[in-house]
């Protein structure tokens, strides 16, 4: 007797017997239907269902998230982060000028390549946005807010796309510090902590250093463009016995408060 439960009475009525026997045929019908949809009718059904569910998803997401009200301390923190980001940008521009690029006004990424998208849902380490392949959003496109990197498109359907955040353990790309140009790799640990690692011990990392992407794009333009802000270093792990040092990165953007992001399309 499993779980110490009493045996159920067998159905004594004919209707009860028929009901019990009907379980397998009905289950088989719906299972077959599910398999048919899974293997043969994915795309058309996805298209139709997303058109119907997208407004509901947007409403449900807005209804379930609290409006953003910042305390004076949080406002100051946000302003501080914005100023740090602006300072990092200025330092990047200064470097480019020194490399004889001062005749170009550098904005990263260019506004004409940015597609605004509303956030319609959240998953573990991911966001759902209301733009998809119908809007030329492709897997691998980068998602930003101002010039802060938020994540990358991991899945794209006709009207909805999945944005994998930096906190996902599959994240890995090359980056540099904005001030001193120290090279390293941004990786995410299993617990969601983003670290700037593989930095040689001789380089001097400092708390509050801004980390920007180095640039990892392929010939099709897919990948991380250079100059996007990843975050700032909040703690450093440096031990003389290790080969490399690393720093924990905290993003300048609070993803939980976002309503809209921008997809860098080609």
């Amino acid at each position: 007797m499993l779980l110490g439960l009493s045996k159920a009475n067998k159905p004594t009525t004919i209707a009860g017997m028929k009901r019990v026997r009907a379980v397998f045929p009905i289950f088989s019908i719906f299972l077959l239907l599910s398999l048919l949809i899974l293997f043969f009718f994915q795309n058309p059904l996805t298209n139709v269902l997303q058109i119907i569910t997208l407004p509901i998803q947007k409403w449900a997401f807005i209804a379930s998230t609290k409006p953003v009200v910042l305390t004076p301390q949080q406002q100051l923190q946000q302003e501080n982060n914005q100023l740090r980001a602006r300072l990092a940008q200025m330092q990047e521009i200064q470097k480019d000028n020194q490399a004889l690029h001062d005749q170009f006004l550098i904005t990263s990424p260019p506004p004409q390549q940015l597609l605004p998208a509303d956030i319609i849902g959240t998953q573990q380490n991911a966001l759902l946005i209301d733009k998809g392949t119908a809007d030329h959003v492709r897997v691998g496109n980068i998602v930003v807010v101002k010039n802060n990197i938020i994540g990358k498109i991991a899945k794209s359907t006709p009207h909805i796309a999945l944005v994998l955040l930096l906190s996902d353990p599959s994240t890995s790309f090359t980056a540099v510090t904005a001030k001193t140009g120290i090279h390293g790799i941004v990786k995410t640990l299993a617990n969601g902590t983003v670290v700037f690692g593989n930095v040689v011990l001789s380089d001097k990392l400092a708390v509050n250093d801004i980390i920007v992407t180095k640039g990892d794009q392929n010939l099709q333009g897919i990948g991380y463009p250079p100059g996007l802000i990843v975050g700032k270093i909040v703690s450093i792990d440096k031990q003389a016995s290790s080969l490399f040092q690393s720093g924990e990165i905290r993003s300048l953007v609070d993803v939980s408060r976002l309503r809209m992001v921008f997809v860098k399309t080609q």
């Binding site: 045996k7 159920a8 599910s34 899974l38 569910t53 796309a161």
Partner: peptide, 30 residues
């Protein structure tokens, strides 16, 4: 549709779960 998974996958899981519960309740109290 909401979670952006292949459509039909969750249905198969839920159908199987319901079947197991209904089969279990033939013999034991649920």
């Amino acid at each position: 549709t909401f979670a952006l998974r292949p459509i039909g996958v969750t249905s198969i899981f839920l159908l199987t779960a319901v079947l197991l519960i209904l089969l279990y309740q033939r013999k034991y109290e649920i």
